[in-house]
Amino acid sequence: MSEDHSYEVHTLELGPYDTLAELHRDLSNHTSTFANLVFERENEVVVSLSHSVVSIAGRLFVSVVTTTDQPTDPHRE
């Protein structure tokens, strides 16, 4: 890891959903909202965004993983 960067991983759990259309609608809304809130609140840059979908007992669940980078001030001790 670089000394002038601080990487963090954030996870958002969504679900359960009965249909893929419901999942897709919420995933699109929540993923962009989650990434933007992290960026604005912490002054971080989103460097990766991924998700996984699992089906359990006929229902769909999603995990959204966002990795962010917050450059550190090299002059700060």
Score class of each variant (00 low, 15 high):
1 M>W: 06
1 M>K: 11
1 M>N: 15
3 E>M: 06
8 E>I: 01
8 E>Q: 12
8 E>T: 09
8 E>D: 09
10 H>F: 07
11 T>L: 07
12 L>Q: 10
12 L>R: 09
13 E>Q: 14
18 D>L: 01
18 D>M: 00
19 T>P: 11
19 T>N: 05
19 T>V: 08
22 E>L: 05
25 R>L: 07
25 R>Q: 13
27 L>Y: 02
28 S>G: 08
28 S>K: 08
29 N>R: 15
29 N>W: 02
30 H>I: 03
31 T>H: 00
33 T>D: 14
33 T>K: 10
34 F>N: 09
35 A>F: 02
36 N>I: 02
38 V>M: 12
38 V>N: 06
39 F>K: 11
39 F>S: 13
41 R>N: 13
42 E>F: 09
44 E>L: 00
47 V>N: 12
47 V>L: 10
53 V>W: 00
53 V>K: 08
55 S>Y: 00
56 I>H: 02
57 A>P: 03
59 R>V: 05
59 R>Q: 10
60 L>E: 04
60 L>M: 04
61 F>C: 04
61 F>G: 04
62 V>A: 01
63 S>V: 10
63 S>D: 10
64 V>M: 04
66 T>Q: 08
66 T>H: 02
67 T>D: 09
69 D>G: 07
69 D>L: 04
70 Q>G: 07
70 Q>R: 13
71 P>M: 04
72 T>E: 15
72 T>S: 14
74 P>D: 03
74 P>Q: 07
75 H>L: 06
76 R>K: 14
77 E>A: 00
77 E>G: 03
